[in-house]
Amino acid sequence: MQEEETHIIEIEKIKDSLQAQIITGNNIPNKFITGVYASDLMSDVLAYGKSGSILLTGLNSQQVAISAYMAEFKAIVLLRGKIPNDDIKKFAEGKNIIVLSTQADMYEACVKIANIKGEVPVIKEVEKPVSKAKNITEHSFKIDGQDFASAGMVSTQIKAILKSIGYDSKLIRRIAISTYEAEMNVVMHAKKADVVLKASDEMIKVSIKDEGKGIKNIELAMKEGYTTATEEQRALGFGAGMGLPNIKKNSDKLNIESEVNKGTLIKIYFFVR
């Protein structure tokens, strides 16, 4: 295992060193980040990004803002002069994510951030009181296949609900990431799905029932790097991955039932400890 490094840097300093433009975010002088993560692949951000970090990316898509929220990033820097669209702005504003835009490319941005010197601000970790839910709460949602405009919105709502109940933030992060992966699967591969969230003080269960192609071989789909792309799509270079291994990694129990050409029922369980 590598020794984990922490970078505590004021966002204001990052903004200055990158000569960045503030797209969203108030009160920046009092904010800092505890890590830097540079990537254009959002699956990677979800799997490896650490909460409290700043994301450096050249990808300009709403999925960037949603992934950053799911992985609890504090800020996003869009590289090479990319200006986010209104969807990203609105989403980031609502979730208190600071968005900056810079002309620098990824290496230049890393170099500049690495060169930021000065006093490291003292962080006061404020432990939020954890008040567990006493009663079971239940919520249902709908996801439409191919509706990329709303992709990620169900997991966003689920995360907000769990936050308002007061679950442990690490647990919420795992749930948010798993739900997001499952939601993206529906958007990319299924016609539609019903999602049910059940949360109690002992367990949180998210079930996603979709109408779609189904999974022919679940065992195979659980293997990393598996793709459901057809031969024809593959010949043209189109492949789409499935997020099942990442869901498994982040959950305590995963149950998949699937019927080809009908659909898939995924039940994801998390134990509240």
Binding site: Q2, E5, M106, C110, A114
Partner: peptide, 14 residues
Amino acid sequence: SPLPTYELAIKLVE
């Protein structure tokens, strides 16, 4: 490299 992109990048910078 086992390091994430940013960690390796700053080592190169240093």
